[in-house]
Simulated scan of single mutants.
Amino acid sequence: MRTFDLAPFYRSTIGFDRLFNLLDQTTADGAPGYPPYNIERTGENAYRISVAVSGFSQDELSIVAKENTLTIKGEKSASETKDRSEVLYRGIAARAFERVFQLADYVQVRNASLEHGLLHVDLVREIPEAKKPRTIAISNGSKAVEAQLEKVAA
């Protein structure tokens, strides 16, 4: 069991509350490990979250993107067993779950697909043109002054 005391950082930093709250959540005891998931980088600004959801159908899963949070929920329907068979041993987990992912600014969900028991959620980071860095041309100050003087003289 590993525990970290982040109290000294709270006292000496301002504006990092969200970061420390995320650290507290990840180190909290009893953090759910179900269902397992992978986060992959598939391109320069493209990502994929793969969640193992074996036993869940497409109708039993929901994906909600709100602000900078992506929530994936799974809930088995009441009529789980279509035939009247008796389960002697249940090794395949079919309990309800909720996974929440914090997304960075400008990250949007592009696509979601369910194949071979894995739910794939494709994400893309699209920075608006106004926020992208741009190159500013540097001109020689004396030439600019001469050009202005020529315009005034003409």
Rank of each mutant, 00 (worst) to 15 (best):
L123N: 08
A153I: 10
A28L: 06
D29M: 09
T27C: 05
A144H: 01
S57I: 02
N21C: 03
E150Y: 05
N38P: 00
G33Q: 08
E126S: 15
D59C: 00
A147L: 10
D24I: 04
R41N: 14
T3D: 06
G141P: 12
H116E: 07
S12L: 13
M1V: 10
L19Y: 13
H120W: 01
I39T: 08
Q25C: 05
L6G: 03
H120V: 02
A112M: 01
G74L: 09
Q148I: 07
G91W: 11
D29P: 05
G43K: 06
L22N: 11
D83C: 00
N68C: 03
Q25N: 14
E129G: 04
V51E: 02
K151Q: 12
Y34N: 05
N45W: 02
T13V: 08
R90C: 00
Y47I: 04
Q108I: 12
K82W: 09
R134F: 11
A144N: 03
A94W: 02
E115T: 15
T3P: 04
T42Y: 01
A154S: 13
F16S: 08
A52T: 11
L22K: 13
R90D: 06
Y34S: 04
E146I: 11
P128L: 06
P36Y: 01
R134C: 00
G117T: 04
E86I: 15
R99Y: 00
K76G: 08
Q58R: 14
A137C: 04
K131V: 08
G33S: 14
H116A: 13
E150H: 10
E115H: 06
S79F: 08
K143G: 11
S77D: 13
H120R: 11
K143R: 04
H120N: 10
V53Y: 06
A130Y: 00
Q102V: 13
Y47A: 06
D29A: 13
Y106H: 12
F20V: 06
I63W: 00
P8E: 06
I136F: 10
E126K: 12
F9P: 03
I39Y: 03
P128N: 03
V109K: 13
T69P: 00
E115W: 01
Y89D: 10
Q108F: 07
S77M: 07
V152M: 06
G91A: 12
F20K: 03
F20M: 09
Q58I: 04
Y89Q: 06
E126I: 08
E80M: 08
V64N: 15
I92G: 10
P8Q: 07
R2E: 14
V109M: 15
R48N: 07
L88P: 05
E40Q: 09
S139L: 10
I127W: 02
V64A: 11
R11D: 12
I14F: 13
N68R: 14
N21A: 15
S77I: 09
A94M: 06
L103N: 02
S77T: 09
E60M: 03
T69V: 15
I138C: 04
V53Q: 00
P128Q: 03
G91Q: 09
A130W: 08
L123A: 09
A28K: 14
A78Q: 07
